[in-house]
Each structure stands twice: as structure tokens, then as C-alpha cells.
Design a protein around this nucleic acid. Sequence first.
DNA 1: TAAATTAAATAGTATAATATTTTAACTTTA
DNA 2: TAAAGTTAAAATATTATACTATTTAATTTA
Lengths: 243, 243
Amino acid sequence: MFESVKSNRISEYIISQIRNAVFEGKLKPGDRLPPEHQLMETFGVSKATLREALRGLELLGFLQVRKGVEGGAIITEVDIKPALGCLTNYLHFKNPSIGDLTQVRILLESYGVEKAAAAISPEEIGRLEELNEACAQALESGNQDELRKNEIEFHRIIAGVTANPILAVLVDIVENLLDGTKEILQPDKTFSEKVLAAHKRIAAALLQKNPDQTRDEMIKHIREVERDLIRLQEERRKSSDSL
Amino acid sequence: MFESVKSNRISEYIISQIRNAVFEGKLKPGDRLPPEHQLMETFGVSKATLREALRGLELLGFLQVRKGVEGGAIITEVDIKPALGCLTNYLHFKNPSIGDLTQVRILLESYGVEKAAAAISPEEIGRLEELNEACAQALESGNQDELRKNEIEFHRIIAGVTANPILAVLVDIVENLLDGTKEILQPDKTFSEKVLAAHKRIAAALLQKNPDQTRDEMIKHIREVERDLIRLQEERRKSSDSL
DNA sequence: TAAATTAAATAGTATAATATTTTAACTTTA
DNA sequence: TAAAGTTAAAATATTATACTATTTAATTTA
């Protein structure tokens, strides 16, 4: 009947107030909150309490706090990073396998790419091709981080074409998990070359607006990545056993 | 080449240290950290800084802080709530529609329930039937919150049968979004009766280990929920227009 | 023996002072 | 005169300390 009002922590109230203000559009990205001493007065709390609230809002991705002249708390676009971080924390204890990840990737992305094949615009295909070009360059220069970032972005763009924000978020999540796996297993150049080739085939199939072929290419690609990553994992396991 | 070393915030260092200790199993759920004054000494920081770190770890779901004798910071099982909260924050600005949600539900849950039909154990079916019983009782007593909680749990259990933690998490996410929608639209008793009837049909199909029928029932169920929620949303829109 | 009281441990909040960082304005110098 | 260096001010970051509130357990009391 009534909601339990525990967590008497004052900082929680401040967090709620500011979060709600952002949700209701009273505070927009770019807006600067008044300086700390003024917020202390406004909320009638001490510095420590206010700072707890600001730090919390920062962790949740609602604002950034900067020092110095022109500093202060600045409302930011709420992005997906805090959520991805929390999910990683949670899944860390569930030990998902590469197979688990693959299963979900195929489910989500084969569906997504098939829908995308019907809806994709020339501009979006252009972006995919640019990305593939950027991948090729990163491969040359050996920029691993840039390479991984672009590889993920390719899948995110395709998910974005579906105009279903929930589907896009879920693809974001699984691609983020995949990225974490890659970061650990450090695949070699051959791996990335195969990925790039697959991405090019997918982009080509999208260009022809062929849903079935696009879907098939995507599934083939995801399975290939699975195979390579599992092999890497096996190698890693063996070498750590022999220690 | 080099990693940027910003965020000199001391509290971030403390958060990292404790999070890593949890990840590495050095700290386990139930463990109690020393009291604040001692942690202040251990880390060599002031109270305010330490508390910033503890508040952060609390928001991230790593620990709970309690007052009083035998109180202090207690390591907790990292659960999915912080992640769901962050995702809700993020999606709030994307305005997903009930149709978007339905599309993803069908994709994930029709797949999940089909797999579950082959793998489900008698105990798990028992739990589903218990849940349906609990739903019937909550329906009688008019306990909305209990009812909603059980309705979600039904889908979570089925997703759990697949033994794929990633799939389970994604179902958790979409069911949580659905729950938020229900909280806003406040469906009536008829709605919940239809849901319960559908859940019973799904449980029965699972008992017979019939993947196709199970899948069909699940899809029918999700679409029915979609229809009802959209109708409610329409009614709400009209009545707010007339204000 | 059960209820009420007290005491101790512990987190929560407040206040004030100092340190650090950032940016802009200013000054110097080649 | 333009680049480089310096300084000053604004703002947060951190520290230190004192005080308050809350929770639990032990103790007293009816």
C-alpha cells in the first residue's frame, strides 16, 4: 500500500530531484548547475552530502563534474556506458561462455540485419563502407583499440537501422560483451582480416537489399568469430595449464 | 598508445580496489569490511572521500552500508537491479514503443521457451505452477504489486531453463521494461486474468514438452498483452487530451 | 520473564580550512 | 607581433574534526 521510505540518506533525495528534473526536461544536456556552495544552500545540506549526490549522479551518467573556472556540474546526455558497466559486473559472476554469447548474437543480429536489409538507406550503407575502410587502415597501422571500436560500431549501425531502440540496446550489450572477450583473448591480425572480409560481404548484401543473403552472411560471420575465439581460449587455457 | 590518466579522484581508486577484490573472490558476499574509521586509516583518506567510494560501490550493487553495532559495509551478491536502473535511465530518452518492446519479446522469448520445452525439469514446471497459483491468489486479494512481480517471475524462470545467462539477462531486461509499462498503465483485473490463463496454457504445453505449441502459446500471449496495453495507452492519451 | 532503559558501536551530517586543478587574462620575450 | 610563459581567480577535491542519529546488544526494572 505505502512505499517503504528507507534509505534516509539525504544524498538519495538530491539524486532523485535532479534525476527527475532531467527526465522532465527541466534540465537538459549542456546545462550547468550552480556551483557547489550555492547548491548547498539550495538543498540546505552540507558539502559532504551534496558531493555524495553529485558523485552518484556522475556514476549514473547524468552529469559530469569538472574543476576550475567554468567548471561545475554539467548535465550530460545519458549514455549507455553506465548500464554496460553494471551488466558486466553482474554477468562476471555468471560466467557466460562464448557459445552463450554466440547463441544470443545470432538470434538478435540475424533478425536485425534481415530487417535492416529492407530498410537501410544509401547514407547508412555509406557509413558502413566508411567503417570498413577505417578498419582496413587500423589493420595496417596495427591500432588494435581503434579496430575493435570500429568492428563493434558496424554491428551497432545495422541494429540502429531497425529503429527499434530496445533491439539496438540489446545488440549494444552483446557487442560490448564480445568486445570484452576480444580484449582478453587478443585475437591476431588474421582474425581481424576475416572479420573485415565478412563485414564487406554483409555490406554488399545490404546494398542489394537481399534479406536472406544478408542474414546468411551475418550468421556465417558470427559463427566464424565464435570458432576463432574458442580456439584462442583453448590455446590460452593450455598455456596457463602448463605454468 | 598511452592511456589517458584522468579521473584523479581518490574515491575512484578505492572503488576499483574493492571491486577488483570482489571480482577476484578475495571479498565474498556476506564479508564485512572494517568500520569507516579503520578504512580511513587503511586507505589513508578522509571520511568524506571514503564515503564517496562506499556510496559509489553501493550504487553499483557491490555492498550495502548499515548503521549501528554490527553495521558497516557488507559485501552483497551483485544483482541485476543497478543495471536495470541504468538501462531505464538510458531508454527513457529513446521513447521505445510498446510495439518495439513486443517485437523484442517475441524474438527472445519465443526462442527461449522453445529451448526450455526440451530442457525443462519437473521441479521447474512445479515452480511455474506454484507461481500461477500465487498469481491467482494475488488476483483475488487485489495485490497488484505481488501480481506484477509474479507475472514477471514466470518469464524469468523460463528464460533461466535455457542455462544461457546472457539470454536470461536480456529477458530480465525486457520483462523489466514491460513491468514499467504496466506500472504506468495500471491494467485492470480482466487483463491479469487473461495473462494468468495464458501462463497456464504455456505451463501445460511445457509439461508436454511440445516446443512448437509452447512457442505458439507464448507468441499469442505476448501479442495479446501488446493489444491490451496499446488499448490502455490509447484510452489514457484520449483522456489526457480532453483535459 | 518480559518490557523498558541504557550504553556502545557505527554510520550520517555539518563546518571550516587547505590543496589542487582549470581557464582566462596578462606579461614577457624572441 | 605572435608564441610562450606567468599569474590570478574560480571552482572543485580533499582533509580534519566535531557533532548527530540510528541500530543493536546488554542491562535494568516492573
